[in-house]
Each structure stands twice: as C-alpha cells, then as structure tokens.
Design a protein around this nucleic acid. Structure first.
Lengths: 168, 168
DNA sequence: TTGTCTGCAAATTCTTTGCAACGTT
DNA sequence: AACGTTGCAAAGAATTTGCAGACAA
C-alpha cells in the first residue's frame, strides 16, 4: 500500500499524511467497536457477512473497492461474504456515516472507513494509480471561508488532487 | 436524473459562479473553433457525429451526461449521434483536453467543455441534484501552497462541495 | 483509394434487486 | 416466532468494443 509520509510535510505542523501508520490496530479496533455499536443501536442484527466486512475495514486502513473486500476475505481463509452482501453492507455503513465513498473517476467506487469524530481527509491520486491520503488544516479553512463567500450551507466536500508519480 | 445548472450567480469579490451567463454564445463559438482546429491538427477527420457533439457543447455551457447529449441532439431535430459515437467523441475530446469529466458519485459521469486557457472551475453539488460551478482564487492558491507542502507535482485537482439546498 | 468515423448490436464491468433459506434476538 | 441477513442468480445501468458500411481527405 503506497501510503507513505509526505516528506516535505515534516516540520510543517498542520500537514501530514492521514495514515502515518500503515494500519493502526488500535484505530481499527476503535472504529469497528463504534461501527458495531451504531448498527446495533439502529436495531440491525449481527450477521456473518457484515461482520466480516467490518473486520476488513478494521484491519485495512486504506481505500478498498467492493471486489477488493471480497478478495481479502477469501484470501484470509476465514468466513467470506458474497459480493452482493458487501455492497449491501457498504450501503448500510454509508447510511450511518461509518464509511465514505470515493469516486476516483475510473468507474469503480472505493470505500474507506470514516473517523468517528468527523475527522476526514482527502486524497492525492498519482498517475500510476496510487492513492495517498492527506489532511491539511489550511485547506479546510479555505473551504470554510469559501462556503461563506458562496453563501451555501456546506454539508461536505470531496477533494482529489492529481499528481505526477513521485520522483523520489 | 435531474442534474441541471443552477442559474444563480452572484458576485462576491473574487468568487463568482463560473457561468454567469446561461450560455455565452461567443465563448461557445470560440471553444468549438478551437476544438475543431485541435482535432484537425491531430490528423483526425471531420465526421457528422463528432461535429454534432461539439455543437452541443458549444451551445450548452453546462455539465452533460453522455445520454443528455444524445437527447439534446434528438430534440434539436438536426443530425443526431449514436450513444457509442458520443462516448467515443468524449474520449477523443478528453484526450485533447477539450472537455473535462466530472464524477458526481452517482455512477454517471458528466462532461463539460474545458476552457482553452487552462481556466477551470469546480462545482457545488446541492442535495437536490443541482450542480453549480464556481471559481475561487483563494482556493486555487490554497491548493498550490498545499501541493508544495505535500511535495507533490500537481497536474490537476477536482473539488466538489456538497451543500444543502439553497434556502433563498 | 485509404484510413477514419458511424451506427448497430453484442459484450463488459460495476452495482442493484428478487427470492428463498438461514440466523439472530 | 418474527424479522433482519445472506447467497445465488438474474436484472440493470453505464460504458466499451467488434464489425461492416459510409465518408472525408
């Protein structure tokens, strides 16, 4: 997974790669607990397929296509989930703001888990297909200010930067 | 699918709706001339279908889905274009940076003509499906600065703001 | 004439849905 | 028992592609 630290960001406090740790187990477990609680409180039941999908998101902190999720489950040997179930689960998770959907423009949607606190980040899409997340407070502030100037009531925003492959 | 251009454009300092005029005929003609020249110089031939598609973009300065283009052509009574031709034309135009593709995340790509000078704008997607373009210099500067901080070589960027329906 | 462009239909790819069986509460 | 959940297969929707004929240069 080509999620690495943005080198030039070092020392610039408010810029940082959003996932500095390839897969922070603690964050994953926290998210998965949160997700299961939210769904339970919504009156939904615990099923094998959905749990498996949640498990994938808990373990893999990166953008995943629906088919990727099926593949990881199959590869892990454990209980799998049908592609239809995966899509249904993604819908459910999205309804409860537990995952975000990302449209890189290649015709295949990607999903990634949402942070409980409303924290969010954006993505740099490199020419070679690599996707790297980032967060930048200055950018967020610019968006806020812009919304005010436009006079619209913002409920969210998606930003995708397109970049040439890293020379480094 | 009801994606229409919102007409409202207000002038807030350096923020402005990118298409204050529902369809600026001069800009449309300019673009269409430019497009045809670029394609001719690329060694491509002039065909009825492609010309018709270019004509639609020249006349309609807003985001269009492939099917929309076919519909407009059919409605206008003049020469039409097959959906396959439209897709092929869109590919060609995109290859030559004559149109941009926009993925609102609803599974259907939208296209809009690109300005010859590299001018570009972004979009506000309202909850009711309305899409409104805007341009904001401060935001562009924020993106530039951000790219530097991230240490990436930016070749483009897409920004979609999601907003509640306008109360006004 | 030569190579491109078009329309039509078939094929692909991603995503959604119907339905009967299964599992949770 | 009641009702949400799942798998399988079929259905849908958007986009792409194969081909033969039409057309521009």
């Amino acid at each position: 997974m080509a999620v690495r630290e943005a080198g030039a960001g070092r020392g610039v406090s408010h810029v940082h790669a959003a996932h500095d740790h390839p897969a922070d187990p603690a964050a994953g477990a926290r998210w998965s607990d949160h997700a299961e609680r939210v769904l339970r409180e919504a009156g939904l039941r615990t099923g094998g397929g959905r749990s498996a999908v949640i498990g994938v998101f808990a373990a893999e902190d990166c953008v995943l296509a629906a088919q990727d999720i099926v593949d990881r489950l199959r590869a892990s040997g454990g209980p799998g989930a049908n592609l239809a179930t995966v899509y249904r689960t993604l819908d459910t998770l999205r309804d409860h703001d537990l995952v975000h959907r990302l449209d890189p423009g290649d015709g295949t949607a990607r999903y990634e888990r949402a942070q409980p606190g409303g924290e969010h980040h954006h993505h740099v899409l490199f020419a070679d297909g690599t996707i790297e997340p980032f967060h930048d407070d200055a950018l967020e502030q610019a968006i806020e200010a812009l919304a005010g100037r436009l006079g619209v009531d913002l409920v969210g925003h998606d930003i995708v930067l397109h970049a040439a492959p890293r020379s480094a």
